[in-house]
Deep mutational scan, measured.
Amino acid sequence: MAAGGDHGSPDSYRSPLASRYASPEMCFVFSDRYKFRTWRQLWLWLAEAEQTLGLPITDEQIQEMKSNLENIDFKMAAEEEKRLRHDVMAHVHTFGHCCPKAAGIIHLGATSCYVGDNTDLIILRNALDLLLPKLARVISRLADFAKERASLPTLGFTHFQPAQLTTVGKRCCLWIQDLCMDLQNLKRVRDDLRFRGVKGTTGTQASFLQLFEGDDHKVEQLDKMVTEKAGFKRAFIITGQTYTRKVDIEVLSVLASLGASVHKICTDIRLLANLKEMEEPFEKQQIGSSAMPYKRNPMRSERCCSLARHLMTLVMDPLQTASVQWFERTLDDSANRRICLAEAFLTADTILNTLQNISEGLVVYPKVIERRIRQELPFMATENIIMAMVKAGGSRQDCHEKIRVLSQQAASVVKQEGGDNDLIERIQVDAYFSPIHSQLDHLLDPSSFTGRASQQVQRFLEEEVYPLLKPYESVMKVKAELCL
């Protein structure tokens, strides 16, 4: 049975990233139509530049190519590739079939990587351009969430054990800070992308030097003109047959890092959902379990974690691919890159769409948070109580021993009897502590235990987050809708 299948058929496997999760716009960027249309555009740009620099290419040939950029006979191309065992030459023939007058000058002087690699770089750039505003929107939604809850005390956790208090907004800023680093890295790697350009079979530009009869300047002009037509500021000066596969490492490393950030955020949300302090959106008709109707599973956060793990592992592909590119190139890269580049971007696209949807509907339960604080705060307040007693004339050592005994009794009630923490009640009825009984409410005010959390939130948002989001103001209103 021949390899390949009808990918629109229910009898043929289709990647869930495309069929179930990723956005239509990201799927289109990695589609065959987008790819092969870009090949034709690159052939047109090459012909236009070659004509401008004096090669015998007519206006009629150029116009014929322009008129057929979208006229792609995919069936013919597939048949040609089956016959020739070469995808680029299959599309040269297919393009030439609908451009008979231009057929002889299509791909003039070029090698397969002229269309293959340059198209990949265009796709990487455009895919990054799709991700950047999506990530900015996630940051914006979380920034709104953090600002609104900047002063809401909550129990902090280290080692997932109760620690000092923080605020809900401050905790959210930990998430935002990681995503801001990801946004900066995505922008950097996007701006650092260079075009492969017009380089020939081993990167020496020998074929173009021959076409222009040894004119170095025209060869350099050709490279520059096509690079500018493709919208790049610069091209690699040095290439082998391909652009260095280190570029793929750079791009997928940034995406993998984004995956790590999203995994951490969504894990926190899942843990908070278990504590009943916070939940992701839950639709009115949504079913959490087929057997347990009360369940409210954090399905979206779980999906993000599941896909983020996949995204983090994909960076190993370009690392290994770059390491086995012998001399000017081997074909070890080809099949692998067809999979890992598309999957990385479709996965990143999915987790950003999902995280935006989550961040637009996060639900906080202040009463649950308050109750958990009441359970733990008495123990945390013991040092403040000791200091207040010393100020009232008591002995630190005597007070410490009193607190120690009462704390152990209260802990026994919590752990052995399943009761509430009654340390404060014990202190309130103990005559030894009568000098500070009137101060206990103040000493137990949760806001006095959150330090500068709310001020940190305000400063972080104003100095770091809002300036970073400013270039994306025009796209901030787009909502994230999930079908599944």
Rank of each mutant, 00 (worst) to 15 (best):
Ala342Phe: 08
Gly259Pro: 03
Ser23Lys: 13
Glu60Met: 12
Glu425Tyr: 12
Glu283Tyr: 08
Thr202Cys: 11
Val254Gly: 11
Arg196Phe: 04
Arg20Met: 01
Thr347Gln: 07
Asn118Gly: 08
Met76Phe: 07
Lys147Glu: 10
Asn68Leu: 08
Lys170Gln: 04
Gly288Leu: 02
Ala273Gln: 08
Arg426Thr: 01
Leu482His: 05
Ser12Tyr: 08
Pro471His: 15
Pro366Gln: 07
Arg83Trp: 09
Arg149Asn: 11
Asp349Ile: 05
Met299Cys: 07
His97Asp: 14
Trp43Arg: 00
Leu255His: 14
Lys199Ser: 07
Ile122Ser: 02
Leu165Arg: 04
Ser290Gly: 02
Tyr365Phe: 10
Leu423Gly: 04
Arg188Lys: 08
Asn384His: 14
Ser447Lys: 14
Arg188Asp: 08
Gly169Met: 06
Asn68Met: 10
Arg149Gly: 08
Met387Ala: 14
Leu211Phe: 08
Ala3Pro: 06
Gly4His: 15
Asp268Leu: 03
Leu314Gly: 09
Leu468Met: 15
Leu272Pro: 07
Leu44Ser: 08
Ser448Leu: 14
Glu64Ala: 12
Gln456Tyr: 05
Ile369Leu: 08
Ala388Leu: 07
Met316Asp: 06
Arg125Ile: 05
Lys470Pro: 05
Gly231His: 09
Thr330Val: 08
Asn421Trp: 03
Ile123Asn: 01
Gly288Glu: 03
Gln408Lys: 13
Ala344Glu: 06
Gly203Ala: 00
Gln184Met: 13
Lys415Gly: 04
Phe460Cys: 05
Glu250Val: 06
Arg309Asp: 04
Leu42Gly: 02
Arg404Val: 07
Leu252Asp: 06
Thr382Val: 09
Ala308Pro: 02
Met26His: 01
Leu124Trp: 14
Tyr114Gly: 01
Leu174Asp: 10
Ala136Leu: 12
Thr227Asp: 04
Leu319Thr: 00
Asn185Tyr: 09
Met89Gln: 02
Pro446His: 15
Phe212Arg: 03
Glu360Gln: 15
Ser253Phe: 10
Glu220Val: 09
Arg452Leu: 10
Glu81Gly: 00
Ile269Ser: 02
Ser407His: 04
Lys218Ile: 08
Leu319Ser: 01
Ala150Leu: 07
Leu179Asn: 02
Glu401Gly: 10
Leu311Asn: 00
Val465Leu: 06
Asn118Ser: 03
Gln161Leu: 01
Phe236Ala: 05
Tyr13Val: 14
Ile269Lys: 07
Thr354Phe: 06
Gln241Trp: 00
Asp223Leu: 06
Leu272Trp: 11
Phe30Leu: 14
Arg396Leu: 06
Glu360Phe: 03
His107Trp: 00
Ser474Gly: 15
Ala453Thr: 09
Arg33Asn: 08
His91Val: 04
Asp333Met: 06
Met65Trp: 00
Gly5His: 05
Arg137Phe: 08
